[in-house]
Amino acid sequence: MSLRIDRGIFKYDFIDHHAILCVPVDADVKEIRKRYLAIARLLHPDSNSSVGAAQKQLAGELLSKLVNPAYEKLTAERTRSEYIIVLSQLGKRLVQESGSVELHTDLAKQLASSPNIDHLYKSAIAKLAATQYDSLQQVPQVIAQISELNLIYLMRSAGKSLAAPPPPPAKTNSVTPPSPTPNKAPAPTPPPATEDSVAEQYIRRAQTLIEKNQFAQAQVELKDALKLEPKNSRCHSLIAVVYVKQNQLKMAKIHFDNALKLDPNDQSALAWKPKIDKALGQPSAAAKVSAPVNADGKQSDKSGSGGLFGGLFGGKKK
């Protein structure tokens, strides 16, 4: 049986791991892990003692070739962040190529024009997940159907993001001609509060976690923020600092580079990037992260004589 899928996101030479597990594209690690365990129980040989050898073999192939790689990709710290960024970029690219996007199912076509996309998308994913692996021969077709829904959701989400800047027309009529009260109604303030405020909540939680040295949890919050705002330079800087604190310098460099591409004046990225580049230029030095990082992702000013990484991660405290 062929496991090749060429619809939805798969059509663009991109493996849709979310479709394989049938979880929303904004699912967190906890939700992904829960779904994976449910699928693994269904496909594991011990759970299929009553079926024939051919069915057991097919279940094993689905588990080893599709399900396990998808789970590893979406939960491993080093790959999940990159995958989400590329996925978001794909959605934005396809918004501009929407004329070439081909939909095969009525559900995907309905989602493309639904005013309440979030509710319809999440409920459709949940319904398909309930029976996704019931018929093993039909699994590739079901995954393709889910991937079409993911594709539409990515495009619609990207569309919202691009359409956010124009101010809502309902409030423009309330502007008064006289000038005595110009300070009471700053026009540019309301529009950014729609989507930015959600990402800012993740960033603030991440800053609190960084102050407590809870870097793994901070990383999860910042990844969620990047799903909402992949072009937020401050978020890239903060998650880069988190990677530094976890001794993942290559990932840190990727996000510092992204931060500077988006904002060449990002102070945190400007301060850290030369030191990261220097450290990566000498791979034989094993780094131990010890310097405190404040809530803005800036390095402590104190430094000691800890060799190459003494200047990078800070030194002795006085």
Rank of each mutant, 00 (worst) to 15 (best):
H104T: 14
S147G: 09
S64F: 07
N213V: 09
Q132T: 11
L37S: 06
S147F: 02
D16P: 10
E97G: 02
A126M: 01
V198Q: 12
L128T: 12
R41Q: 13
D263N: 15
R7C: 06
L149H: 05
L209M: 03
A53Q: 05
S47Y: 01
A295K: 15
L111F: 07
Y83L: 11
N116G: 04
L94G: 06
V241H: 06
A269T: 12
H104D: 12
Q217E: 04
A124T: 10
K223Y: 00
P165A: 13
K184S: 13
A163T: 05
Q55T: 14
A259E: 00
L87D: 14
W272G: 04
Y202I: 02
K109S: 12
N150Y: 01
I210G: 02
N232Q: 09
P180N: 07
A286G: 04
L270I: 11
L270V: 07
L111C: 08
S179Q: 13
A108G: 09
E72G: 01
D46T: 05
P188S: 07
L37H: 09
I20S: 05
A158W: 02
Q282G: 01
L209Y: 05
G315P: 01
E77F: 10
A259R: 07
K250R: 14
R156M: 10
K160Q: 11
Q110A: 07
S147R: 09
S290C: 06
K273L: 15
S135V: 07
Q219Y: 10
L90R: 05
S268Q: 08
P283Q: 11
H17P: 03
D13V: 06
P178Y: 10
Y83K: 10
G159S: 13
L149R: 02
N116P: 01
M251S: 15
G310H: 06
E102D: 02
V67S: 06
A252G: 11
K261G: 03
S113C: 03
K34S: 11
K227R: 15
D134W: 04
S161E: 12
A19N: 14
A27C: 06
L63Y: 14
A53S: 11
K250A: 14
S197I: 06
Q137E: 15
G311F: 10
G99K: 07
L280S: 13
V241I: 11
V293F: 07
L63G: 07
Q299L: 09
T75W: 14
G307W: 05
D28F: 03
L107I: 13
E200G: 02
A54N: 09
I125P: 02
A187C: 02
L103W: 03
Q89M: 13
L149E: 08
N232Y: 01
A144E: 13
D301G: 11
Q138C: 00
V86S: 10
D134K: 13
L128R: 15
V220N: 02
Q246L: 15
A295I: 03
A164L: 15
P191H: 07
P230Y: 00
Q145R: 02
P180M: 05
N232K: 12
D224L: 10
S300Y: 09
L21V: 13
S64A: 13
P182Y: 07
D28E: 09
I146V: 15
R35D: 00
I9M: 04
L209N: 00
D13E: 14
I39K: 00
P292H: 11
D46A: 05
A271L: 10
L87V: 07
L42N: 06
N183A: 08
L74H: 06
K127W: 01
T181M: 05
S50E: 14
V25H: 10
A27P: 02
D13Y: 04
